[in-house]
Design a protein around this nucleic acid. Structure first.
Length: 173
DNA sequence: ACAAAGATCCGT
DNA sequence: CGGATCTTTGTA
């Protein structure tokens, strides 16, 4: 059976998709053919042009173009000249939203995930719905989680304090 | 054309 | 706490 998360999963508001991704599996098929599954433990939501922390706050540019495309599309970008951060586009087409994958069970930190999964610019615009090297799979786990403000966005003014970071609560497992 | 900052990580 | 390292964006 196909456990890959379908378009309908991502075609919802980012604030619904983000917590639902906790406990799901991020699956990477490397060039060698080896397939690794990583259970998601930490995510953040970035929501629309109004959200000053969202890259789409700058409007439609070459970099943010993909945020306006179909739900389930891969958004990767290089930060600090060395780390590829991984996001999945959510919501209706033309509503720029994305979930940042910040942590999985074996790896803490969005920059380290990109390094471990060998991500690069070639993933930009690819789709999690049909890719043969990067996708999400369902899981029966419904872990309890806590919310906190997002990390590293102190510049975002009133949007800084919104608790749009979702972290699996280990204590409750 | 140039300068500045960034959804980070690591070593000191 | 500062350096690495380079793309994107704002300003001229």
């Amino acid at each position: 059976m196909d456990k890959r998360l379908p378009r309908e999963f991502f075609e919802r508001d980012v604030l619904d998709v983000a917590p639902d991704l906790l406990g799901k599996y991020l699956v990477r098929r490397f060039d060698s053919g080896d397939i690794h599954r990583f259970q998601i433990t930490e995510v953040e939501a970035y929501r629309g042009e109004e959200d000053k922390a969202c890259h789409a706050a700058k409007g439609r540019t070459k970099r943010t173009e993909v945020l306006y495309s179909e739900p389930g599309t891969i958004y990767v970008y290089l930060i600090y000249g060395m780390y590829w951060l991984l996001n999945v586009v959510t919501g209706e087409k033309d509503c720029p939203q994305a979930v940042l994958i910040r942590g999985v069970k074996e790896i803490s930190g969005p920059g380290r995930i990109g390094k471990f999964l060998k991500l690069d610019a070639s993933f930009y615009g690819e789709s999690f719905l049909i890719s043969d090297r990067l996708w999400f799979e369902d899981s029966d786990d419904k872990p309890l989680y806590k919310t906190t403000p997002r990390i590293g966005i102190d510049y975002a003014g009133e949007w800084r304090d919104l608790e749009w970071r979702f972290v699996v609560d280990e204590d409750s497992k």
